[in-house]
């Protein structure tokens, strides 16, 4: 299973993907949760106390030497992507491994090599060893400019608002533009409050809505307290909805 969560900012990608990763791991599956947002994102939703983890070292990418063929930058040949994941990811609750592409602490320019390394490692990670659950930054900039190519399923998280629907439509279009990497594109309805919201999202995006995550005060409280929803409110309707999403998509997981 290689699943990327995308959507408008604030739609609930981190809360849903973090909970998704934890639920999957509790079933005994190897789960790698990845975060390619330079702003705080997935760590808290997974239940890690701190947001910052050391980025992949700069020397994990090397520049093409004079006279060599190929792209200018590549993964250091001494770095095996599978070992890289083991080495540079950190352990989150339930045995989830967590790898992120670096948080901006100062000048973002300082991070570009480790971010490139992150991208190479994920894109070159052998299939079949990890279930990968990714939380991409909000909006459309990163989603399909080379940062989502590792995924085989794109889950677009959509709220019942005009702006979120418009973003969802744009993302669905973009996800469909790469004929070499055909992807399954699904929608998850988020912050659902009213009957009719799910239908509005299905209609507005033209996508199959595979889960409906209700608006949930307990989830909002978890966010206020910087706690993982699955730890703070394991029985809340939102967490149960994510668990049902795991169930729904479980046929393709790697055990």
């Amino acid at each position: 299973m290689r699943l990327a969560f995308v959507g408008k900012g604030g739609a609930g990608k981190s809360a849903i993907s973090g909970t998704f990763a934890r639920v999957l791991a509790r079933q005994g599956d190897k789960v790698l949760a990845i975060d390619s947002d330079p702003l705080p994102g997935l760590a808290f939703s997974l239940g890690l106390a701190i947001d910052h983890t050391p980025p992949i070292p700069d020397d994990a990418v090397v520049e093409r030497k004079e006279g060599e063929e190929g792209p200018r930058w590549r993964l250091n040949p001494d770095v095996d992507p599978f070992e890289a994941v083991e080495r540079w990811s950190v352990e989150a609750p339930d045995g989830v491994r967590f790898l992120q592409f670096g948080k901006i602490l100062g000048d973002p320019k300082n991070l570009w090599r480790s971010q490139m390394a992150f991208r190479f490692v994920i894109n070159q990670l052998p299939a079949g060893r990890w279930n990968v659950v990714g939380d991409l930054p909000g909006g459309t900039r990163q989603a399909f400019t080379g940062w989502g190519t590792w995924a085989n399923t794109i889950v677009i998280v959509v709220e019942p608002t005009a702006k979120s629907l418009l973003s969802g439509r744009r993302l669905a279009r973009m996800a469909d533009l790469d004929p070499e990497n055909p992807k399954r594109i699904l929608a998850v309805a988020s912050k659902v409050r009213e009957e009719g919201d799910v239908e509005m999202i299905a209609k507005g995006t033209g996508l199959e809505v595979v889960a409906s995550v209700p608006w949930d005060e307990e989830l909002a409280e978890a966010e206020r307290r910087q706690l993982a929803p699955i730890d703070f409110a394991p029985g809340s309707p939102a967490v149960l909805a994510v668990a049902s999403l795991v169930e729904r998509l479980s046929e393709e997981k790697v055990s």
């Binding site: 459309t140 900039r141 744009r170």
Partner: peptide
């Protein structure tokens, strides 16, 4: 914004 939605909130329409 790389995902521009301001028109919606201003009332310019979809």
């Amino acid at each position: 914004d790389s995902n521009p939605n301001l028109g919606i909130s201003l009332g310019v329409g979809d």
